[in-house]
């Protein structure tokens, strides 16, 4: 597995632990159930902490706790299961979460573009993925029609800018 953060390939920084694994020192990502069960002791550890939501675990469940998380990892059990796209948008657009939103699981290159647009800033990808592949996939389309969690201007707003510029040019020529 390789980790891409904000477009750069980086070393793994968090250890993902299961429900019953012993907690290692340092930064960990725990399953939601474990967070809910061990919330207080996890907070007192004073190390960066992340939580992982499975498909079907609505982010509403961590809404009040978001300040505690450096990472929210959203699982794609299979690339076809697109629930986490909506979860990412809720985290970003509605809950105002500014920490890392990481895509984990079956994260394939043809989905990078969609993930980045929905607010994922970290992707755990297959080892065969290179920076070139990443760039090509994320940069597949110059324009986007619809607003999402990224700050791309929509085609609609670009059209309005063009129209306004044309109006100004006309006014100047008059």
């Amino acid at each position: 597995m390789k980790l891409i953060k904000n477009g750069k390939f980086v070393e793994q920084d968090f250890v993902a632990v299961g429900a019953d694994d012993a907690l290692p020192d340092g930064a960990v990502i725990v399953p939601l159930e474990r967070w809910e069960a061990e919330r207080d002791s996890l907070i007192t550890r004073n190390t960066p902490i992340g939580v992982k939501l499975e498909s079907g675990q609505h982010p509403e469940r961590i809404r009040e706790d978001l300040d505690h998380f450096s990472v929210v990892a959203l699982d794609f059990p299979i690339y076809r299961n697109g629930r986490a796209y909506s979860y990412a948008r809720l985290l970003r657009d509605r809950y105002g979460y500014e920490g890392e939103v990481r895509a984990v699981g079956n994260v394939l290159q043809d989905q990078f573009y969609f993930m980045v647009r929905c607010g994922f800033d970290a992707l755990e990808v297959q080892d065969k993925i290179t920076p070139e592949v990443f760039e090509q996939s994320v940069g597949a389309f110059t324009y986007a029609y619809q607003p999402a969690a990224d700050d791309r201007p929509t085609v609609m707003s670009l059209r309005h800018r063009l129209a306004a510029r044309a109006d100004e040019a006309r006014a100047a020529a008059d």
């Binding site: 697109g82 796209y85 969609f114 929905c118 986007a144 029609y145 619809q146």
Partner: peptide, 13 residues
């Protein structure tokens, strides 16, 4: 049509 084309959130319904 435009809104739904390559909608990043709704391409894997």
């Amino acid at each position: 049509r435009q809104w739904s084309t390559f909608h990043p959130e709704f391409s894997f319904l």
